[in-house]
């Protein structure tokens, strides 16, 4: 890798639970990645715009309010529209088992559910990008 992995941690929708997003942001930063955190209440449009502007490799979406299906779908649609579907998208939060295949069908690569260690997320990203970025 010639540069550090750039990650956008984002909170889509109105959900205010940001403990997990902030812990992940900090853990990824401590693991040597460059991390941008959007703050609360981001629209999918804002998230995708930030991701493109900041030229990130990864977007991590955190949501605990149950509105993940429409919001994740909109983010993925916008990424495709803007030709940015090479950005890896993962998600975390209170997401029922049944919804995971639905999110994956939109192109979300990985969903981390409650109880996941930050180590697992770091290892997942390192593994995914071990051969450099595409």
């Amino acid at each position: 890798m010639n540069r550090r992995l750039r990650v956008l941690i984002a909170k889509p929708g109105l959900d205010g639970h940001d403990r997990g997003a902030k812990v992940i942001a900090r853990a990824l930063r401590d693991a040597g990645m460059e991390v941008i955190y959007t703050g609360l209440h981001q629209t999918p449009e804002q998230i995708v715009e930030t991701a493109i502007q900041e030229d990130v490799d990864v977007i991590g979406l955190s949501i605990l309010s149950g509105a993940h299906i429409p919001l994740f779908k909109r983010v993925m649609d916008l990424l495709k529209e803007k030709g940015a579907e090479d950005i890896l998208v993962f998600g975390g939060g209170v997401i029922p088992e049944d919804d995971i295949p639905v999110l994956e069908s939109f192109g979300v690569k990985k969903i981390f559910t409650p109880g996941t260690s930050t180590r697992e997320v770091i290892e997942y990203l390192e593994e995914y990008f071990k051969n450099g970025r595409n």
């Binding site: 929708g13 109105l14 629209t43 309010s65 509105a67």
Partner: peptide, 10 residues
């Protein structure tokens, strides 16, 4: 439009 997907959720 800002709240699409959140109505009646939590």
């Amino acid at each position: 439009p800002l709240v699409s997907g959140e109505v009646g959720k939590v």
